[in-house]
Design a protein around this nucleic acid. Structure first.
Length: 578
DNA sequence: GCCGTTTTCGGCCCGACTGTTTTCAGTCG
């Protein structure tokens, strides 16, 4: 029962209440609670187990009633109130909300009038022409629902950030060529660097919306036009990805930029704050009680009008950033220029594509001070992992290479490292005699993903307790949109990392981003160093560091929290573990 | 159901688009 599970509980309660037609403010409370819990940096289960009910007070959006339900869910694994609601409305009714154009009101109507209990029922009813007989429904809506069901059946769901960015870039270029367009900016979760995005949002600045809208819906990749209005249009591409544009004028740019960047939770908090100050915020600007425009041209203006400093997009998730801004406690998050090197790099000795010198030269060009060459160990056979003999040979090659750099007068160091496999029993895949000769030991799980949670946790903790490991790589093993991470008690792993002076990796590979943003928040709270690494398998992968850096920013990490933001001397001290 | 620079009670974020309506409810972001 982790935070994400609890959040899902309350979202389900809110959805069910909405279908039932309950009080809107009560529904909102459950949604707020879900948002608050999902973004909470500490595990509520962990808090409760160590500090009891008292440890759960003071969390925004969680009052007496919801706190009781949280505790019930933590201790029993279920929630009586949710079960009661589910008795009234079958679980499949919730699925109806996934159909675009179907909200709680229609879902409730369909269930009540036609006994529709799921998407299959809905499809059958639409095909039979039953939906259009209901009040407020017509043939257009019925056809649209059928189409949405098709979309759901064929869609792949959320897109990885790196993939969505490519589509977004193409649209930005396309729209910039439309006459009258002054600028085009990706907004939404893309601008916040969320690891997956459901759709692409673009803000277009132009005084004339007509040519923009016409060009947009006429794009050759468009499969379907969902909406086409004066300021907002929406399409679905042949790939299944949805793209929304908002056309605004320059004078509203700042307000629109903030509004469409979101997140929704952040916007709601901004508007609530404005209300308390006697102001109103919408996508056009900040207005006083006489409806007079107070600010709106730039993001800085708008935040300033609300008595706040600029909050960067990565922090706009409704995770306490506004409170922090008021208190002057906003983090100065880690930036590209802070990164001094890369501590997880492969060469063609294992499964990389480029040689030691090629990887090093490319890193020098990036302005780095160091890289750690961390090829796989022998257990990872598919990756042509190195045995002891080959590691020793590589150590010699690196020493010789460093000598050559020194003679050339280049201030750059290749660290002798390894990505050592953590075997099923928690032992490391290189003998101590080899490990002793390495500067940077990165350890990782590469097999046995199906282990039970406590076994996996014990396996990793045992590896860390050898005292040999400098960095635990891709700590959860997840691959975005492909496989969940292995079952592991990440808090216990973090405690072990803290105790043994081990850093945790934020693997920047766009398929991994592991640690994720929430885990970064947890690491920050616990005072554990994070290594933002690329796991580069060729020189072209170094660029992926940006995904890691922005994910770290989403996790509020500052320069001081990042191991490879340390210059070489300081880094070596830490790697030697005191 | 939550919360407090307007409040322990009485409020609770804002606007665009669509389809089915004769003035607006529902959905979406």
């Amino acid at each position: 029962m982790e935070n994400s599970d609890l959040a899902r509980f309350f979202t389900e309660i809110a959805d069910l209440l909405e279908i039932k037609g309950a009080d809107n403010f009560r529904i909102r409370s459950y949604r707020n609670a879900a948002l608050s819990i999902e973004g909470h940096p500490e595990s509520l289960r962990g808090l409760f187990e160590s500090g009891g009910e008292k440890a759960l007070t003071g969390i925004h959006g969680i009052g007496e009633s919801i706190r009781a339900k949280v505790i019930e869910a933590i201790t029993t694994g279920s929630c009586g109130y949710l079960e009661e609601l589910k008795k009234e409305l079958p679980a499949g009714v919730l699925d109806l909300l996934r159909v675009s154009g179907v909200g709680p009101k229609k879902a409730g109507l369909f269930f009540k009038e036609l006994g529709i209990k799921g998407i299959d029922d809905l499809e059958a009813a639409a095909m039979a022409g039953l939906l259009k007989t209901l009040h407020g429904m017509g043939p257009v809506t019925e056809a649209r629902i059928l189409k949405s069901i098709q979309t759901i059946r064929t869609s792949t769901g959320k897109f990885k950030l790196s993939v969505a960015m490519q589509y977004a870039d193409a649209f930005v270029t396309y729209l910039k060529r439309v006459p009258g367009v002054e600028r085009v900016e990706p907004v939404g979760s893309l601008r916040r660097w969320k690891e997956t995005v459901g759709d692409i949002d673009l803000l277009v600045i132009s005084d004339d919306h007509l040519p923009v809208t016409s060009a947009f819906v006429a794009h050759p990749d468009v499969r379907e036009v969902l909406a086409k209005g004066e300021t907002r249009s929406s399409v679905i591409l042949k790939t299944g990805l949805q793209v929304d544009i908002r056309v605004m004028e320059e004078k509203n740019f700042g307000a629109a930029f903030i509004y469409f960047t979101g997140s929704k939770a952040h916007n709601v908090e901004l508007r609530e704050r404005a209300r308390r100050m006697g102001l109103k915020v919408n996508e056009y600007g900040v207005f006083d009680s006489d409806e007079k425009l107070v600010a709106g041209a730039s993001e800085e203006d708008l935040y300033r009008a609300l008595g706040l400093p600029l909050i960067i997009p990565e922090l706009r998730e409704g995770r306490g950033e506004i409170e922090a801004a008021v208190a002057g406690r906003l983090p100065r998050v880690v930036e590209t220029s802070d990164i001094k090197g890369d501590l997880h790099v492969h060469t063609n000795e294992s499964d990389g594509g480029d040689s030691l010198s090629e990887m090093a030269e490319a890193a020098i060009k990036l302005g780095y001070e160091y890289i750690a060459v961390t090829d796989h160990s022998k257990a990872v056979g598919v990756a042509h992992g190195l045995d002891e003999k080959r590691v020793v040979a590589q150590i010699c090659a690196i020493e010789a290479y460093n000598e050559r750099l020194k003679r050339r007068g280049v201030g750059f160091t290749v660290l002798k490292g390894a990505e050592v496999d953590i075997r099923a029993d928690g032992t490391l895949d290189h003998p101590d005699s080899v490990l002793e000769r390495l500067d940077c030991i990165v350890a990782a799980v590469h097999s046995g993903f199906q282990m039970k949670r406590d076994v996996m946790t014990g396996r990793i903790v045992k590896a860390l307790e050898t005292g040999r490991v400098n960095i635990l790589a891709h700590p959860t093993g997840r691959l975005i949109n492909e496989r969940d991470g292995y079952e592991v008690d990440i808090e216990a792993v973090m405690e072990a990392a803290k105790k043994t002076g081990t850093a945790l990796e934020l693997n920047s590979y766009p398929d991994r981003l592991d640690l994720n943003d929430i885990h970064c928040l947890m690491a920050r709270e616990k005072g554990i160093l994070v290594a933002i690494s690329t796991d580069a398998h060729s020189v072209s992968h170094y660029g992926n560091i940006r995904f890691g850096i922005h994910t770290a920013a989403r996790g509020w990490l500052e320069r001081k929290d990042v191991l490879n933001a340390r210059p070489i001397k300081k880094l070596m001290e830490i790697l030697k573990k005191g």
